[in-house]
Design a protein around this nucleic acid. Sequence first.
DNA 1: CTGTTAGCGCTTTCAC
DNA 2: GTGAAAGCGCTAACAG
Lengths: 345, 345
Amino acid sequence: MKPTVHDIAAAAGVSLATVDRVLNRRSGVREVTRERVESVIRDLGYVRDVAAANLAKRRVYPLVFIIPDSASSFMRRINREVREAASRAAIERTDISWIEVPAFEVAPLVRTLQRLAEERPAGVALVAVDAPEVRDAVDKLVARGIPVVTLVSDLPGSKRNHYAGIDNLAAGRTAAHLLGRFLQPRTLEEGQSIAVLAGSMLVRDHRERLEGFRSLLASDFPSLEVLPVLEGRDDPAQVHQILLELFQRRADIAGLYSVGAGNRGLIRALKEQRGAALRAVIAHELTEHTRDALLDGTIDVILNQDAGHEVRSAIRVLKARADELAVIDAQERIRLDIFIKENLP
Amino acid sequence: MKPTVHDIAAAAGVSLATVDRVLNRRSGVREVTRERVESVIRDLGYVRDVAAANLAKRRVYPLVFIIPDSASSFMRRINREVREAASRAAIERTDISWIEVPAFEVAPLVRTLQRLAEERPAGVALVAVDAPEVRDAVDKLVARGIPVVTLVSDLPGSKRNHYAGIDNLAAGRTAAHLLGRFLQPRTLEEGQSIAVLAGSMLVRDHRERLEGFRSLLASDFPSLEVLPVLEGRDDPAQVHQILLELFQRRADIAGLYSVGAGNRGLIRALKEQRGAALRAVIAHELTEHTRDALLDGTIDVILNQDAGHEVRSAIRVLKARADELAVIDAQERIRLDIFIKENLP
DNA sequence: CTGTTAGCGCTTTCAC
DNA sequence: GTGAAAGCGCTAACAG
């Protein structure tokens, strides 16, 4: 039978309260007593029953998600996943709420973080904007003992406890590798160029994807020429416009990598007028639109991060921190999914 | 404040015991009383606190995994994941044990299932062998109210409650699509053939992968010739031997798809003597060997199923059934991972 | 510093 | 049929 606090109390010759104090590292126990109790805990191989502990604590964990009000399918998806998690949360003694802030803006995000530092929730998850002010605000939260997880977009150099998102450098390299492989056999025959489309170079994940993409192409497929990056601001209409112009300007585009959002515009442009030389298109995030485009051959590969997994992972990590529990690392690593027509979920 | 059994009891004018009987559909309650209590439960929007319930029940769920004693890296990995889950399980009121049975054999598996029908654990997970006797044994377990999950290899036509594994038809199609894309540009120039290597055609997952592979290649890349399947019995030495022979016999092999295990033999053969025309190799399961092969370019693509995810998913599903709880479908769907050099975890 | 006691929300005897 | 009371493993006042 698994040992309980009672067993420890009996074996150590102390009361339940003292055992509890030792267990929870609370003060008010003489050093000798503490050591005695701790050795009994070790000897008996005691592991705390977290469910019972939480029941007794009657503690619910208020977790707050800060998400951009972006209209992109992906962010809407994140939003939906948070809502769904919230509706499921009651069962698990967590109280999940969310705050929407203007996308890509520093000031409102910082204000929100500062407010949360006062409210002291049990944990905060945010889609980070990469700015020093945000970093400071995050660090302050952590300093106050509030665990912070970055979601989708990381905040390097900050003290955030965890990042629930993909490796964007690897994403770019993956796109480059596949594009290179798809196009390579013709490389020797004729000049081929590759177009790259981003939302904005101000966003960290886009920058990183591009960096990975360029460096791998340069090293492994040097004959492929990468055209200057086009910025579509993740807006379908702009993306559409830009691409049509591009296709009219250049006839030698063999590959296209879209690192950002606004995929509806991309798909529309490809369907209306597609360069004859274009033989491989890679974009990010599986949505109903990109899914259809994959199925009808408009897009060849979708690189994806599982929004549901990211949100659930952020919650698990925050809860584990609040409970001082360990997490299963493998379970919390967000995969870079490669989807083609045939392995769609 | 969330309503509790006390609130229900008070509102319905009955005792806790009666509420509990209604909640757990136990007998000994007059129909009118039951209805009254049930309507109160609905009105208050009561949701049972499973943690508290389990605490009171002092119930632990004995779950049994039946896994083949195969020496393949993948099965060893499954084995390890089960052990790890078992060591973690105590915290979660589950008691996980496992039984090893000879791989691919029907009789021992059936005997084990029959024994479990007597022992009545709270749930059973098995790597199924596709035979009518196994199906019957599984159906009997389910009929006795013991939830059953198939792991890695499914048992179609049986009453198993859930399958924790990938879609093997889709896996084959995915391999075909990628191989086709990697080779396609040359298709017109010269004859190319594709070699396929399997463990045994008696195993369902291998058969399905092959079927998906062949059908997609036939429809989308008809100019690629698929050679007769080679059977290596998932044994590195045999696989090695067979491949060396093949490479000596044919010089026109442009692509290779290995649906089974024995990847060490595959890798060794490729390194020793590789057909000059061979430009794309796809195999299954990410292990330390295939990982290295991916990195050094010996293998181009690895299709993978996440063993840890499969095991954890099986446990979640079995527990949820025992607790009469719902599962998050998206969380339990096992993805077909595509790994290339660049997106390795 | 340490112990006693009363729960958390639910289940389970055992009476009535 | 129904209810009262004890208790699961842990925590949190409140005494001492």
